[in-house]
Design a protein around this nucleic acid. Structure first.
Lengths: 163, 163
DNA sequence: CATGGTGCTTCCAACAATGGGAAGGTCAAC
DNA sequence: GTTGACCTTCCCATTGTTGGAAGCACCATG
């Protein structure tokens, strides 16, 4: 079948199929006389594998490893599990980083009137980290370093809403 | 002060300072006769603002908006809040996507022996989404679509561990 | 047969944010 | 005067994906 059909069946679009081939993630597709790439059901199967792995957030590099293990009938499930668990740890780290951001920002936003006036604890905090939120309480701890430095790196365009 | 000093004080490295200027996020730095960029305490203040906003996961675009509001003495806190809350929602979406991945993958991993044998529910599921995990229970619902399609887009190199 | 239209091909660019590095200029200290 | 730290600009790489242009293949209908 042609690449378009393979794309439809696998859920990986033509562009990406070619890309995956170009980086060696998939094997070089056979060609018809026309020059068109030719795909088998097996190829589609592999593409779906890739698609699912991507949906689980595996990197292309990791998927390469997983594909190799998939093809290896003598694989150890331990190897697969190791890759997966490492990925889970990475995901947990990301989640933690995001949760910290959410916590800080929600807290700041909660204390923002959100009206026509300029006073805003969010801006104030960005402008000067020493600006603390004053809870309607007694204690006014001069705590520094209010915002978690956390991980550097800032999550790609993950929330690419398919508008 | 020179860019290196500004970098040290702001927590934004020289490379990024120049980048932020190049994309118009910060104003064009004044130059000394030598051609070196010259920074004031105010400039450093702005850079720290940017740094904190980045730590909260705001995009450069959003930071541009926030900076404009910061400079605008007549701003409405509502505008700041709106940007922030939108960002919180984006973060929550990302968190949700990540949590779904974690849930699926943890579940699969939990059912993987992780020994020397090749049998592996993780690989099996990637290879064929119809492969369901059989809980030691009675019901065997033929549920399809086990893995959430979720958002496309796959979180940048967020977990860039500072080794 | 000519003409479309659709799908395929390759190649190049862009995105976001950051880092690495080359080739060269400036400045201060020695 | 030379060394070394710092600055300058410019290009490249990253990650995964998308967009587009220019050109060929194929199949339809007029």
């Amino acid at each position: 079948m042609h690449i378009g059909e393979a794309a439809k069946r696998s859920g990986v679009n033509s562009k990406m199929i070619r890309y995956y081939e170009s980086i060696g993630l998939t094997e070089t597709a056979t060609r018809q006389e026309s020059g068109y790439r030719d795909y088998s059901d097996n190829d589609v199967h592999a593409l779906r594998f890739i698609r699912r792995a991507r949906d689980l957030g595996f990197s292309v590099k990791q998927i390469g490893d997983l594909l190799a293990l998939w093809r290896d009938r003598d694989r150890s499930s331990a190897d697969v599990k190791a890759i997966s668990l490492q990925h889970v740890r990475d995901l947990q780290d990301k989640r933690q980083a995001i949760e910290d951001m959410i916590a800080t920002l929600s807290n700041l936003a909660q204390h923002c009137h959100g009206d026509g006036r300029p006073d805003c604890p969010i801006i104030a905090n960005l402008a000067d980290a020493d600006v603390e939120l004053r809870e309607p309480q007694a204690e006014s701890r001069p705590s520094k370093a209010p915002i978690a430095p956390l991980e550097r790196g800032h999550l790609g365009r993950t929330s690419a809403r398919r508008a």
